[in-house]
């Protein structure tokens, strides 16, 4: 197991569209273990493989406070069940330090494979619905900042670019 590096906006690699997983094998399961370790280490509740520069359609998640309810979604897909817009202050491990209100459909049905490659489905609302839509965005090369105004997005971009420059100088 290993903690991987999380890419940060505006890194162009975050714009890659991920490929579906063909077979859920031990390599995939090792990757999933790394994703959980990386996610828990960064105090995140969800992580898409895209964020650690692996462009396969895999999402890990744990919404519990005790970090004891890990969930894996392989090749996830959502169907909107309730279009009523729901707003949430989203934050992202790839956009550290910024939180913005994003509006998404309130309720969705998730279809995915589990870590044994078995298909399952789940009706999601509230935080789970927000999180899975956010993660599937990552797999499609999108970020939550794409849902906010260009003005806010550019402000976040320049602040993060400045932070990255400072980090590079101290390395």
């Amino acid at each position: 197991m290993a903690i991987r590096t999380i890419l940060e906006f505006p890194d162009p690699r975050l714009r890659t569209v991920a490929e579906p997983v063909a077979t859920v094998d031990d390599d995939v399961r090792t990757l999933i273990d790394d994703m959980f370790e990386t996610m828990y280490d960064a105090s995140g509740i969800g992580l898409a493989a895209t964020q650690i520069n692996v462009h396969q359609r895999i999402v890990t998640m744990d919404l519990s406070e005790e970090n004891n309810q890990p969930m894996v979604f392989i090749n996830p897909d959502v169907e909107v069940l309730d279009e009523q817009p729901h707003s949430y202050q989203e934050g992202c491990l790839s956009v550290p330090g910024f939180y913005e209100e994003v509006t998404r459909p309130q309720q969705v049905r998730i279809r995915a494979l589990n870590r044994d490659g078995e298909a399952f489905e789940l009706v999601a609302d509230e935080l789970l619905a927000v999180c899975i839509q956010h993660e599937i965005d990552h797999l499609d090369g999108k970020l939550f900042v794409d849902h906010i105004s260009p003005l806010k997005r550019n402000r976040i971009r320049s602040k993060l670019e400045k932070k990255h420059k400072q980090e590079a100088a101290h390395r």
Partner: peptide, 13 residues
């Protein structure tokens, strides 16, 4: 109005 999941701690994902 909806109440955010955590009042003092915000979620990142």
């Amino acid at each position: 109005l909806t109440k955010n999941m955590c009042s003092d701690e915000k979620h990142v994902f």
